[in-house]
Design a protein around this nucleic acid. Structure first.
Lengths: 199, 199
DNA sequence: CGAGTGATTGACTTAGATCAATGACCGTGG
DNA sequence: CCACGGTCATTGATCTAAGTCAATCACTCG
């Protein structure tokens, strides 16, 4: 659900915009939460970095998506937000937003509903990560992300990004895609992947 | 946050209890949502099963925990709930609960807050699954689940259950624990694991 | 034009999955 | 009360898929 569908007017009035260059960080894990963001343009990823330096991509937010929803109820951000491309974001300050939501049960309900969606998406991510085989993992992703026609997946970002999102090395992803393509189940052109059989 | 801390009285009045034997299923993915559950005793796990028959454990709910929060906003359950032990659960019917929450913004806010917590926990799970090495994965788990003293982890359920939760085979987990124990970093006794150095 | 990055493919290594066997324990029913 | 079936815990042997290291080519951007 896009932010515009539930954001109370009062909170909108208090919003501030900001531009980010690719690679720039919007907030860091442990930083004090100042509010919830909406991505206006570009892509911003939420990641956690482990001690070995590997990034776990938790979410990729694009235009219309909210980020850091959970920060409304928490004093600190619990992951890093980094712009994957040049991007523009809008900050809805926590104080005003929380107040507005408390005034407006309908909006609060809609907000809860977006959180519930998030929960479902995250569970799907965990399901995906549970799939051991790279091939099946990729298929799972393709099946879930097929567009309206049930057979075309439009990639956001690079294949390298996708590899990180899937928890594979880029090499493994390249090989797996090449393999599936050889087997005839998909075709690739530019940033699109087309399934031979709709899901 | 335990259910009792935010559940509106009206919804409580409409609750119904149910007993489950170990292995019995409470609801299935795709089933019509009738409400939200609280676990009264025992443990109930939320899982998704892939086509290869592997279970991905999404969550394990124990006494006081809510289950299927997201179902309030969805017509169908999106995973299976299976009792891991004999268990008792309480059902808060969707209709009454939703109505009660809409009447009571404070409660709705508290409910949102539990959803936000869920989101954070799920993200931590994804972070965990991103750790490739079994050893580091186990360490990560231990660090996050150390009790108040910062060095004792009390296991809920069997090691096999834990293996599934961590996304490892039980054999790999046994081996990894044995290895870490040999290295002197942990000690095991009964259902408890003690870190040599607090986190 | 040169630097930087993505896409791709090859060769090699390894950690964890798989298959298998054993002993301990536990509740159940005769 | 005890034998038996079932599950957990554990360890061994083997295999394989994905990670790692490395090289190349195509692009794009300043």
């Amino acid at each position: 659900m896009p932010v515009k569908d539930w954001m109370p007017a009062v909170a909108r009035a208090a919003a501030r915009d900001r531009k980010l260059k690719a690679g720039e960080s919007l907030f860091r894990r442990g930083g004090k939460t100042i509010g919830l963001y909406e991505v206006l343009s570009g892509y911003v990823r939420l990641v956690r970095v482990d001690r070995t330096g590997h990034e776990a991509v938790l979410h990729v937010a694009g235009p219309g998506d909210a980020m850091a929803e959970a920060s409304l109820f928490s004093g600190q951000y619990h992951c890093d937000a980094i712009a994957s491309t040049n991007a523009a974001v809008r900050l809805y300050p926590k104080r005003e937003l929380l107040a507005a939501l408390e005034e407006d049960p309908k909006a609060m309900k809609a907000f809860s509903s977006t959180l519930a969606d998030l929960v479902m998406n995250l569970r799907t991510r965990i399901e995906q990560r549970n799939i051991r085989s790279a091939r099946e993992r990729v298929r799972h992703f393709l099946a879930l992300n097929a567009g309206a026609d049930g057979r075309t997946v439009e990639l956001r970002g690079t294949l390298k990004d996708l590899a990180a999102e899937l928890g594979l090395t880029h090499e493994a992803l390249y090989r797996t895609l090449a393999e599936i393509e050889r087997s005839g189940d998909i075709k690739r052109k530019g940033g699109k992947i087309t399934l031979s059989k709709p899901v």
